[in-house]
Nucleic acid binder design. Structure first.
Length: 225
DNA sequence: AACCAGGAATGTA
DNA sequence: TACATTCATGGT
């Protein structure tokens, strides 16, 4: 696993045992809503992003067509509660610009592209980086692209499995190689890590209420892969 | 009243 | 490649 000392499959089972199925990402029924959510939640709480999504829905602006046609000045007012509102408005606009200029405004067809092709397209859009691209691939397009976020890094660091500043690709590859290539597994695992990370692994010393058998930084999971 | 939240782009060395 | 800075609101 290229230097990453861990047992990711076992961790998945333990998280699943501890918390049960999460069946995650709100609004997963609508791919565009997932895309908007992925951008809006960048470095902000989901509750603030969700407020904006509700506001956009009430204003009938939760479609690529509407975002494309609405003036940035008007969008900014609605997006403000999510923070970085000018930047995030520009990001949503940039996605729509790409959608029309390169894919005739056909979101379904865009999301039907092969995983790596779609990932490249997404990464070429202003405001979409590794994590946002993978979240869109996984939860909007239903493709097996594992999402690495701040929680993933924090949890693995607290377990003592990584140093902490490994590259995004390195961590993504580790999960990808350790797991069966399955959308459900990827989505569930990411959700479990976030759920766990929201209440644990934040600070040293380790908490003694950790459901991972209270074994953070012990030898129980360690295994050179 | 600091500090943080499910990042990404940009600039510097 | 590796850091620092900027973007900004709302909750604790």
């Amino acid at each position: 696993m290229d230097g990453i000392d861990c047992n990711l499959r076992e961790l998945y089972q333990d998280l699943l045992r501890a918390y049960g199925r999460q069946d995650w990402w709100p609004g997963r029924e609508d791919p565009f809503e997932v895309i908007v959510g992925a951008v809006l939640t960048q470095r902000t709480t989901w509750t603030n992003a969700a407020r904006v999504i509700d506001a956009l829905r009430r204003a009938n602006l939760l479609t690529p067509e509407a975002i494309r046609q609405t003036e940035s000045r008007d969008l900014e007012i609605l997006i403000r509660p999510a923070g970085f509102y000018r930047a995030k408005t520009a990001k949503l606009k940039a996605f729509c610009t790409m959608l029309w200029r390169e894919h005739a405004g056909d979101l379904s067809r865009l999301l039907a592209l092969p995983l790596e092709d779609l990932r490249s397209v997404l990464l070429s859009v202003y405001g979409i980086g590794d994590e946002t691209a993978d979240a869109i691939l996984l939860y909007a397009a239903g493709k097996p692209s594992f999402v690495i976020d701040a929680y993933t890094r924090r949890v693995l660091t607290r377990l003592g499995w990584i140093e902490g500043r490994e590259s995004y690709q390195q961590l993504r590859t580790a999960f990808t190689q350790a797991l069966p290539t399955d959308v459900g597994t990827f989505a569930e695992y990411h959700a479990l890590i976030v759920h766990h990370g929201k209440s644990h692994c934040r600070s040293r010393p380790r908490c003694n209420t950790c459901p991972l058998l209270g074994m953070c930084e012990t030898a129980n999971y360690r295994e050179d892969v």
